[in-house]
Amino acid sequence: MLRVSMVLALSLLVATVAISAELSQSVGSEPATAGPFVARTVAQAKAAGVDTRVVLTGRVVKVIKADEFLMADDTGELLVFTPKGALEGLDAAGSVVEVIGRIDQNFMYTEIQAESVRIIP
């Protein structure tokens, strides 16, 4: 019984080391030591997990409400929810914006919960 336990423990250790090595060599432009991943395109945001930070630059396709709009870049489109009134009084449709926030999953689609939205002149 002791021999079986030792073999299982050793196997678990080897598997853990192998998985750690694989994760540290993950595909991407930023090394693993550079900190958390930040999505910079709509395609990256859609592929990333919930709560991933985003810094996106794109154009406003359609303003849906004073706190909700559809944005697009060269890689796709995403729905963006802004802090209440962030777009109030601005004619944002067609404008180029920078959105900083986090990815949220709502039912079957990905959206952005924006912390800030800045219209780029």
Results as ranks from 00 to 15, higher is better:
87 L>I: 05
44 Q>C: 00
11 S>H: 08
74 D>I: 04
39 A>V: 07
78 L>H: 06
103 I>E: 02
5 S>D: 01
40 R>Y: 09
47 A>L: 15
74 D>V: 07
76 G>R: 01
51 D>Q: 13
88 E>F: 15
109 Y>G: 07
12 L>C: 11
3 R>E: 15
83 P>C: 08
85 G>S: 07
97 V>M: 04
108 M>H: 11
71 M>Q: 14
69 F>K: 05
120 I>N: 09
112 I>L: 10
10 L>P: 03
9 A>N: 01
56 L>R: 07
87 L>K: 07
11 S>D: 12
105 Q>C: 01
46 K>P: 01
79 L>A: 14
91 D>Q: 05
68 E>H: 09
70 L>D: 13
72 A>Q: 05
57 T>H: 08
55 V>F: 00
103 I>A: 03
53 R>Y: 05
97 V>G: 03
93 A>D: 14
66 A>S: 12
86 A>I: 05
17 V>Q: 08
107 F>N: 14
88 E>V: 00
23 L>Q: 08
53 R>K: 12
53 R>E: 09
49 G>Q: 06
119 I>Q: 15
110 T>E: 08
84 K>C: 01
83 P>I: 11
114 A>Y: 04
114 A>G: 04
55 V>Y: 06
3 R>Y: 14
22 E>F: 07
43 A>G: 09
45 A>D: 07
106 N>E: 12
116 S>C: 06
78 L>C: 05
70 L>S: 13
7 V>C: 03
91 D>V: 03
81 F>I: 09
104 D>G: 04
80 V>Q: 02
64 I>R: 12
16 T>L: 09
51 D>K: 06
6 M>Y: 00
56 L>E: 11
87 L>Q: 07
2 L>E: 11
36 P>V: 10
102 R>I: 04
83 P>L: 09
78 L>E: 13
26 S>K: 13
56 L>W: 09
88 E>Y: 13
1 M>H: 08
48 A>T: 03
49 G>M: 10
20 S>F: 11
72 A>T: 07
